[in-house]
Write a protein that binds this DNA or RNA. Structure first.
Lengths: 226, 226
DNA sequence: GTCTATAACCGGATAGAC
DNA sequence: GTCTATCCGGTTATAGAC
């Protein structure tokens, strides 16, 4: 399904070549960084010609999109056991967030370039683009599960928006993580802990009838951003 | 002061050439977009050689940084009258935010590339880099003025953090604006209205003694992100 | 030292033959 | 589906003029 999203590769042989190029690229990205890895180097190390590499990946950026799909699936896999065993909102959200950081950690070095591209609305890679829709929706669904499987009392109007809000929150954390050069990314981990706590508290607050007007106002605003 | 930040150009003649290149570049960016504007085209239209353009601007990206400085100063200028006449937090913040959108509107077309670059931690352009420090600090100070000149009651601990928080908020709005293709950027304007309202309400809430623990927790978290 | 110009280099991308 | 040849534009090296 990851493969199907992007381009050719129907036959076994093509698929194999395609996979080889992608593996090589990710390896080189991880080891040398994105800018330092030339398409020529990828092609050479994958034993294909430059033109051939472009047959499978229409641009260097497309390789990044493949990376997205890949880490996203790893994240799903890593989250499943958490969601199966944890039942408080706090524990579930923290589990999913830490799983995310675990998944992308090996790529911290070139993550910057990654999300750089992602910020350009003209790029097919930016998180709100049509091309990213599938990953984004699946990811949002994951946060839906975080909420739905939790024993927290959540007002219905908020519950409807929460998956999208948490997805947005998770993007913010990733953005922080990108700039985080503390040992073992300790600052990002700390931020996850504290923000998850705060979010859980806020959600509990939101259930308070006194908070209804404020909650409604906030949700109305959020509806505008859809 | 904008000029001094970036590179050579001491003499009058150099300064003039430098200014001419920058004007030409911004004009071309605005009219054709960033990627479509080549350094060769900028040089030609500014009547300098390619090498000469690179003498003044060490890369195409540096031209963007100059753009930052430029719009920032325009924003300051456009905000001043607002701050002189408005006295509620809501009106002041709304004024400054709308002024921001007014200032950058002509560049909406290539704003994407702009902030694309800005998202890369390796880039000197990203908002948290040393190179951007001056603009960021001045901008933060502007939001400090928004708060200080307002008649709102703001707890001291919050007041200390508020300028930075509002700066961050303003970055979020700009990010939304970049992706906003509604006529006259109506959605962004609406979002500013609603979010400013919400922020004013939240600040009023924060002054309530009952909110103290929550406020403290939030501020503690924010302190972690410094 | 300040400024300007010309000629490469390098890597992403494309065209077109096989 | 694969290759070779080429384009194109950002960037650099370098030489010299003021």
């Amino acid at each position: 399904m990851t493969a199907a999203r992007v381009s050719p590769a129907k036959t076994t042989k093509g698929e194999e070549t395609r996979a080889r190029i992608l593996e090589t690229a990710l390896e080189l990205f991880r080891d040398r960084g994105y800018d330092e890895t030339t398409m020529r180097a990828i092609a050479a190390q994958a034993h294909v010609s430059l033109g051939n590499a472009y047959y499978y990946f229409t641009s260097k950026e497309t390789l990044i999109q493949a990376f997205y799909g890949r880490t996203h699936e790893e994240h799903l896999a890593a989250s499943a056991p958490m969601l199966a065993t944890r039942h408080t909102l706090k524990a579930r959200l923290a589990g999913v967030m830490h799983a995310k950081l675990d998944t992308i950690e090996p790529y911290h070095r070139f993550a910057g370039v990654l999300f750089k591209t992602a910020a350009d609305p003209a790029s097919p890679l930016h998180p709100f683009s049509a091309e990213s829709a599938q990953v984004r929706e699946e990811s949002t669904r994951l946060f839906g599960e975080v909420v739905d499987g939790a024993d927290a009392r959540v007002p219905d109007d908020l519950r409807a928006e929460l998956p999208r809000l948490l997805w947005l929150y998770h993007m913010g954390i990733v953005l922080f993580w990108i700039h985080d050069n503390s040992p073992k990314r300790a600052r990002s981990r700390k931020l996850v802990e504290m923000s998850v706590d705060l979010i859980a508290t806020l959600i509990a607050f939101a259930a308070n009838p006194l908070m209804r007007p404020l909650r409604k106002a906030a949700l109305k605003m959020i509806a505008e951003t859809k």
